[in-house]
Design a protein around this nucleic acid. Structure first.
Length: 270
DNA sequence: AATAACACCTGTGTGC
DNA sequence: TGCACACAGGTGTTAT
């Protein structure tokens, strides 16, 4: 579910509530997520949240003892509760704070994760392999072209490869390729520097707009206050099979590319 | 080394 | 109404 905008919207939503708050207890009802929930989380009583950061699609909750590393997987979401009600079926983790606040993690498909980085550890193997942030200056046309040099895979697959650029998932890959007029199956290495520049520009623009709109809510994503994101109304191709292209009215087509639903305009994307 | 397929899990929608 | 099946925002692992 959550791509970079949804994770960033979540970060923005929880940051002001939990920063400086002291953990009372971490309650784990379902430890079996993508990986077992880190056992260290049960020993965090008394630890204050010093910072709430994001790296790629990971949320990083920093404490003096170490960092909680949360990934939302396909269906995860975090909510801030001022008075926690009874947990629902897929409410797997609660972080209780000393003043009564609760950070609640819900994840029906359980593809998400709650991992732990010791304070003295520099990083984590899952973070080490990650490409630059798409919204950073390091992610530019020269970088992208260099990174896809010699790659024979379709450009859409490359855009979703977290070792090339992080944070772009299936929805935004489809959108960006439409906006740049590039066919999703275009072999990556055949793209010119100019095309790479277009991609970089549109990736940054699209992700920023989506963050500003509160992310994309298709079914179960919600912001940390329970409100949906509104970027779904701005989607040009994703989920619009058989509907008219916003540029030329040609019907949007859908097909599978690397196991993922791919939407495009056959007329506008070459 | 690069690429493709598979795995994890639950809920929902579709077609018979 | 019930059932079988396909599919869903991600990504590490395994196979080719």
């Amino acid at each position: 579910m959550p791509e970079l905008p949804e994770v960033e919207v979540t970060r923005l939503g929880i940051e002001s509530h939990i920063i400086g708050q002291t953990i009372h207890a971490v309650e784990v009802r379902q430890p079996q997520l993508r990986w077992p929930v880190a056992p260290q989380l049960s020993q965090l009583a008394g630890q204050p949240i010093q910072a709430v950061k994001r790296r790629a699609k990971y949320l990083l909750l920093e404490t003096p003892l170490g960092t909680i590393m949360v990934h939302l997987g396909m269906s995860g979401s975090l909510r801030v509760l001022h008075k926690p009600d009874l947990p629902g079926k897929h409410d797997h983790v609660d972080v209780h704070f000393t003043h009564g606040l609760c950070l609640r993690y819900n994840d029906p498909r359980r593809f998400g994760s709650w991992l732990w980085i010791e304070a003295h550890q520099t990083s984590h193997t899952l973070l080490d392999q990650l490409a630059p942030e798409p919204l950073s200056v390091a992610f530019d046309a020269t970088y992208l072209q260099h990174k896809i040099k010699g790659r024979r895979r379709p450009i859409k697959v490359c855009l979703m490869d977290q070792s090339i650029v992080v944070g772009v998932g299936n929805i935004y890959a489809n959108e960006v390729l439409f906006k740049t007029g590039i066919h999703p199956e275009r072999i990556a290495s055949t793209l010119s520097l100019s095309a790479c520049q277009d991609l970089v520009t549109q990736i940054k623009r699209t992700l920023e707009q989506a963050i500003a709109q509160g992310g994309t809510t298709l079914k179960d994503f919600s912001q940390s206050d329970g409100q949906p994101g509104y970027f779904a109304q701005k989607l040009c191709v994703y989920g619009r099979k058989h509907q008219p292209c916003l540029n030329c009215a040609t019907k949007i087509t859908e097909f599978k590319l690397g196991q993922r639903a791919t939407f495009m305009c056959e007329h506008c994307q070459v």
